[in-house]
Computed example of a mutant assay.
Amino acid sequence: MVRFEDLALFVRTAACGSFSKAAREANLLPGQVSAAIMRLERDLDLRLFARSTRSLRLTDEGERYLPYAREIIDLLHSGRDAMRRDDAELTGTLLLAAPSDFGRNILLPWLGDFRRRHPRLEMRLQLSDQVADVFRDPVDIAIRYGQHADASFIALPLAPDNRRVLVASPGYLEQCGEPQSLDDLQRHSCLLWQMHGRVYDKWVFPAGKSRRIVHVKGALASDDADVVRRWTLAGEGIAYRSWIDVVTDVRAGRLRLLLPDQPGEPAPLSMVCPHRRQFSPAVRQLHALLTERCAQLVA
Rank of each mutant, 00 (worst) to 15 (best):
L182C: 07
A221G: 04
H215Q: 14
G197M: 05
F153S: 10
P206W: 08
D183P: 00
S189M: 09
L166Y: 09
V134D: 03
H196D: 15
M195K: 14
L182V: 09
C190P: 03
F153A: 09
P157Y: 02
L158F: 02
K217T: 10
Q186W: 05
R212E: 13
C176R: 15
M123T: 11
L192T: 00
R116F: 12
Q175Y: 11
R164F: 02
D184L: 08
L156A: 05
G208V: 06
K217L: 05
R117C: 08
N162V: 02
V139Y: 00
L185P: 01
D184F: 05
Q147N: 12
D137A: 14
I154D: 02
A219N: 14
W193S: 03
G197P: 04
V131C: 07
V214C: 10
R163H: 15
L185C: 06
L125C: 08
S152P: 05
A207N: 14
Q186P: 00
S181L: 10
W193C: 01
L192A: 00
M123L: 15
L166I: 11
A151Q: 14
H196M: 11
H188C: 12
S128C: 07
D129E: 09
I154P: 03
L127P: 00
R144Y: 02
Q147G: 08
F205R: 01
Q194L: 02
A159I: 00
D184N: 12
H196V: 09
E178W: 07
P119C: 08
G208T: 07
L127Y: 02
P160G: 05
L121H: 04
E174L: 14
D137H: 06
R198L: 10
R211Q: 15
D183F: 06
L220E: 06
S169H: 02
Y200Q: 11
P119V: 08
D140H: 14
A221Q: 02
A168W: 01
F205M: 06
V134L: 09
H118G: 03
I154A: 12
P170C: 09
L127E: 03
D129C: 06
V167M: 07
Q175W: 10
V214D: 06
R163T: 15
P119W: 10
Y200R: 11
R212L: 15
V165P: 00
E122L: 13
R187S: 15
L156F: 08
L185I: 08
K217N: 13
R187V: 06
R116Y: 11
S181R: 13
K217W: 09
V165M: 06
R117K: 13
A132R: 01
Q126H: 14
L166A: 07
Y200F: 15
I141A: 04
V134N: 01
L191R: 01
S169F: 04
A219F: 08
Q130P: 01
P179N: 13
E178I: 12
K209A: 12
D183M: 09
R124Y: 04
